[in-house]
């Protein structure tokens, strides 16, 4: 990778904003963080979020409401989203790993790909672990992997020093055209490795996660344990909504006028009782425990890992924060290991 020294990430952001819609996560001053459109004239300091925002990059590509087609009574008309070139600025390694996971899952989905192919990804390495993260355990971070982003920002332990900018793709290289940057002189590989060690130490051994994955794949978790967890699942859909790799959806048909209609797809959740229920009433995953088991097996099961060459969990910890029943990833793994 080519490495540059970057005095101000805001300069890069403004440069990209000349040709793209640039989105960045900003705090709302009340404890919330949201993706916001940033203009080329916006020089607000770039501060990578210390905690993952509730929404990852997922909704930019796998839209929460996506129009699929219209029907006018006689013909069906496909619709594809018209997406202006856009930049997601400042994505953490965990969320970029999730984008890669979904790129693979939705490789043949025209709606996803239309949005994805219009997007340049600018990643940022983490110097410190977020509160509930465990990227070092599932191998998704804290350093952005080369194939996961187009450009990678590396902050420095010494805040007074310039940032590093790594060029990770052809598109990233092309996007820098017109921006003059000096080549980096620092030993950035060594710095990144040191950062990784630091974050891994902060995250600790996370033994319950490591042991929980083993138990889950060894089939050591009995149905009673899953049902006990299921009793704590309110079926809110918060985990599947915020999970950056969750991808289930449902169709929603709407009659517009007599004989004309449109179909949208909307995010769905495998934790709903009705998710698999058939018209006959038969339900292959009738109990909450079965559904909770399904969710976690999808994230940590060896069978899925073999298909995707990665866990479905990127270690961001959003499920822990959003679950009212206390059965996010740490909650589940602690109970699973404890019961074992």
């Amino acid at each position: 990778m080519q490495a540059y020294s970057l005095d101000q990430p805001e300069r890069l952001r403004a440069h990209l904003a000349l040709q793209h819609h640039v989105y960045e996560v900003r705090g709302d001053g009340q404890g919330g963080q949201h993706w916001e459109l940033v203009s080329a004239r916006d020089f607000t300091a770039f501060e990578p979020a210390a905690e993952p925002p509730p929404f990852s990059a997922k909704s930019f590509f796998f839209a929460e409401r996506e129009l699929l087609f219209r029907f006018d009574g006689g013909q069906f008309y496909s619709t594809l989203p018209a997406v202006e070139p856009q930049v997601l600025f400042g994505l953490h390694a965990c969320d970029l790993q999730a984008v890669a996971y979904q790129d693979r899952f939705f490789a043949e989905d025209p709606h996803y790909q239309a949005r994805r192919q219009a997007t340049l990804l600018v990643g940022v390495d983490c110097l410190h672990s977020c509160e509930g993260g465990f990227c070092s355990i599932v191998g998704s971070g804290p350093a952005v992997r080369e194939q996961r982003a187009d450009l990678i920002l590396v902050p420095r332990q010494d805040h007074a020093t310039d940032w590093l900018l790594l060029v990770a793709s052809e598109a990233g290289h092309a996007a820098l055209r017109g921006l003059r940057l000096p080549e980096a002189t620092a030993d950035w590989q060594a710095e990144r490795s040191a950062n990784q060690v630091c974050v891994a130490e902060e995250q600790g051994p996370q033994q319950e996660i490591v042991d929980g994955i083993v138990s889950l794949n060894a089939g050591k978790i009995d149905a009673e344990t899953w049902e006990a967890l299921g009793l704590r699942c309110l079926g809110c859909s918060g985990c599947t909504t915020e999970c950056p790799t969750c991808s289930c959806y449902a169709p929603q048909d709407r009659l517009n006028a007599p004989a004309s209609m449109q179909r949208e797809r909307v995010w769905d959740s495998c934790l709903y009782q009705g998710f698999q229920q058939e018209a006959s009433g038969h339900n292959p995953s009738a109990t909450p425990g079965q559904r909770v088991q399904r969710f976690w097996s999808h994230k940590f099961g060896d069978g899925f890992k073999a298909q995707f060459e990665a866990y479905g969990c990127v270690g961001c910890g959003r499920c822990d924060r959003v679950c009212p029943g206390g059965i996010g990833v740490h909650g589940v793994m602690q109970r699973v290991v404890h019961h074992d």
């Binding site: 043949e108 169709p251 018209a279 899925f304």
Partner: peptide, 19 residues
């Protein structure tokens, strides 16, 4: 097998059976 199916392309998730 009968399953609830929506997309028929292995994407919407509803008809899962194991992996």
């Amino acid at each position: 097998l009968e399953r609830r199916m929506h997309c028929a392309d292995g994407l919407c998730g509803h008809c899962y059976l194991g992996t």
